[in-house]
């Protein structure tokens, strides 16, 4: 059993499980599969994972999916495509979880990001503190103002 192994092996197995989630978040993975990667029983694995990362494996998987969804929405991917690309099976559960984790709906979040990207493209110097911008000579370029 993992509990009898030296601690370093336990850590390596937990890290493998975390990296498995990081890599396979878009697939239909479940706790059994994640625990199998770490060679732990489900109960033991959940307890160790939570102790190490402060989240249960399921909470962590959801966070990874929402984080990735934020990136995809920021890159103008449609909400439907984003939902399925990050491993959710229904738009309604995706929208509800997204709002719970970020405070915004996917469409509200995407509109904010599109607006910000447009502002960055037209007036980038607005996003740079003056001490850095003037040091680089960027404040002298009137196109950025």
């Amino acid at each position: 059993m993992a509990g009898q192994l030296p601690k370093i092996y336990v850590y390596r197995q937990l890290v493998q499980a975390k990296l498995f989630i990081d890599e396979h978040y878009s697939a239909n993975i479940n706790l059994d599969e994640i625990a199998d990667v770490a060679f732990f029983s489900k109960f033991h694995f959940t307890r160790l994972f939570k102790k190490t990362y402060d989240y249960t494996p399921h909470q962590y998987l959801t966070r990874v999916r929402i984080d990735r969804a934020k990136e995809l929405l920021s890159s103008d991917m449609s909400i439907t495509d984003t939902c399925f690309a990050v491993g959710f099976e229904s738009i309604s559960s995706f929208t509800a979880l997204f709002k719970r984790y970020t405070g915004s709906t996917p469409s509200g979040f995407q509109q904010q990001k599109i607006k910000r990207k447009q502002e960055i493209a037209t007036t980038p110097v607005k996003f740079v503190p003056n001490c850095f911008a003037s040091q680089q000579g960027w404040t002298e370029n009137s196109n950025f103002q």
Binding site: P124, F127, V128, Q136, W138, N141
Partner: peptide
């Protein structure tokens, strides 16, 4: 880490 801002500031210049 998360990208906060990635802005082109002109040729070969990036914030």
């Amino acid at each position: 880490f998360k990208v906060h801002t990635d802005a082109s500031m002109g040729p070969d210049m990036r914030w």
